[in-house]
Amino acid sequence: MTRSLTFTLAALVLAAGAGAASAQTKPLTSEQARQQIAPFYEMLNQPATKDLKALAEQTLSPDWKSYSADGEFKGREAFVGQVGGFGKLIPDLRWDIRDVLVDGNRIIVRSEASGTPVGPLFGVQPTGKSFRIMAIDIHTIKDGKAVTAYHVEDWAGAIRQLTAK
């Protein structure tokens, strides 16, 4: 996917109503946005080695919601549990930020996740193969903390890579 297409997709998702939280008084700069959201991605890098609860409390509001579809979300505690499970399943999990865009109080991140599962991932038995996939996240910030995240990851691509002959 080209860079301009990625940004166009992010803009379309944003325009479709990716979050309804109230705006901050001052828009974030790109550097402020990177610093604001860095602890979130730090949670996703080798999560089994981290204090996920502390990182979540640093960057996510207590009532934070992670949306994977309209109306389907996880709260902060459930998300921390899920990330911890991924950390055990994929000990070398990396989630690298590739691009950050800012629109008012929203931070749009294109990232790349990679790792080598040591247990079944979405029903696929471990074979020593690794995956590398793209993700798009739209974080809404209020009072210095993320209040929502809308996200899409290419887990189907991970399965194709892990099952390729």
Rank of each mutant, 00 (worst) to 15 (best):
I37D: 00
L28S: 04
E57Y: 05
A18D: 00
A158W: 00
K142Q: 14
T29V: 13
S68Q: 08
H139D: 02
T140P: 00
L5R: 10
D96A: 13
L89M: 14
P91M: 13
K129N: 14
N45D: 14
Y67L: 01
G104H: 13
L89Q: 13
A20C: 10
H139W: 06
R110P: 00
T127G: 15
L52M: 12
F73T: 02
T163C: 11
S22R: 12
I133C: 07
R106T: 01
A158F: 04
F7Y: 05
T29F: 13
L9C: 04
I108L: 12
A158R: 01
T163H: 14
Y41H: 09
I138M: 03
M43Y: 06
D63H: 09
I90H: 01
L89P: 04
M134P: 03
Q46F: 04
I159D: 06
W155D: 11
V147R: 00
A11R: 15
A54T: 11
T49F: 08
F79G: 00
L121S: 06
F86S: 06
P27Q: 15
L93K: 03
L89N: 08
A20Y: 07
R76H: 12
T8C: 04
M134T: 05
A158T: 03
K88C: 06
E77T: 15
M1Q: 11
V100K: 02
T116I: 11
F73Q: 07
T8W: 08
R34Y: 01
V118K: 11
Q35S: 15
S22C: 12
Q32F: 06
I141C: 02
A56W: 01
V152D: 02
T6H: 08
V100N: 03
F7G: 01
T6C: 10
V152L: 09
K65T: 09
K88W: 07
A158H: 03
P117E: 13
V147A: 02
Y41Q: 06
R98L: 14
T127Y: 12
V80C: 10
S66I: 01
Q161C: 13
W64L: 00
E72Q: 15
G71D: 05
F86Q: 05
V83N: 01
R76V: 07
A16N: 14
E57L: 10
V80F: 05
R76W: 07
R94P: 01
G75S: 13
L5S: 07
A10G: 09
Q161A: 12
T29C: 09
F131E: 01
G71H: 04
D154M: 06
D63Y: 08
T49H: 12
A15Y: 07
T25E: 14
A78W: 08
K65W: 03
P27F: 15
R94C: 06
W64H: 10
A164H: 15
